[in-house]
Amino acid sequence: MSMEDDRQVPPTLRPNPNVRQNQNYQPPPTPVKPMPMGPRYMPDEPNRRGLCACITIVLLLVGLLILVLWLVYRPTKPHFGVISAAVYGLNATAPPLMTTSMQFTIVITNPNRRVAIYFDTLDAYVSYRSHPITTPVALPALYMEEHSSVSVSPMIGGSPVPVSPDVSNGLAMDEAYGVLGVSVIMQGRLRWKAGAIRTGHYGIFVKCDVMMSFKKGVSGQVPLTGAPACYVDV
């Protein structure tokens, strides 16, 4: 190397002739600056809050829609009324068994102008002083359109039913007096229908107190002593 070449090399990069060069020498690695520690996953809080707000708004709108539909289509209980009665058998002289056969004409009215009614099941029996004196009879399934009425005339009884002496003695006294008071009980399940919406099943209980003129030995149609009032619970 000439003197001119030595002048072009910086002094710090010139080899020191007094130091023996190590062929396996490697410069130390450059230190890496550590990264700051933090959570591996940071949820997107604004998106989560927006999703919760959307769900809340949708639920409120659905609840408001259901409330409006209920107020518009709010169903009213059906009405029941007994308009005629007939007695074909009343054997109260052989306790503890008693055989009764009666027929009642019952008018069922749907007072709703926007809601129809399905009577899926409806059973009827006759009781005297809160004691059954006939076996239940199943009425046919009914579908009542909006603001409509239908009459049914089930024949109830015909099979022997065990009764207490108080019941048989009370019936004998009413026969002698000429006025017989019984209750027509109906129980079943119904559904409401508003447009394309159908509700679940609801239990229904109906009690019609009937007072009729009746004397021993009479068979057939008997006059009612008043307009029977029916209690309806749904």
Rank of each mutant, 00 (worst) to 15 (best):
M1L: 13
D5A: 10
V9A: 07
L13H: 00
R14F: 14
N16V: 09
P17L: 12
N18Y: 14
R20T: 13
Y25R: 02
P29E: 10
T30F: 12
K33R: 15
G38D: 06
P46I: 06
P46V: 03
P46C: 03
N47H: 02
L51Y: 09
I57A: 15
V58P: 02
G63C: 08
L65P: 01
L71R: 05
V72W: 09
Y73Q: 09
P75A: 07
K77Y: 08
P78R: 00
H79A: 14
I83Y: 13
I83F: 12
V87M: 11
V87D: 07
G89H: 04
L90T: 08
A92D: 09
A94E: 09
T105N: 08
I106E: 05
A116W: 02
F119E: 00
A124V: 09
Y128M: 04
S130V: 14
H131K: 14
I133L: 07
T134Q: 00
H147Q: 11
I156Y: 04
G157W: 01
S164R: 14
D166A: 15
N169Q: 13
G170K: 01
L171P: 08
A172M: 12
R191P: 02
F205V: 12
K207Q: 09
D209T: 11
S213K: 01
G217R: 03
Q221P: 05
Q221T: 13
Q221D: 11
P228Q: 08
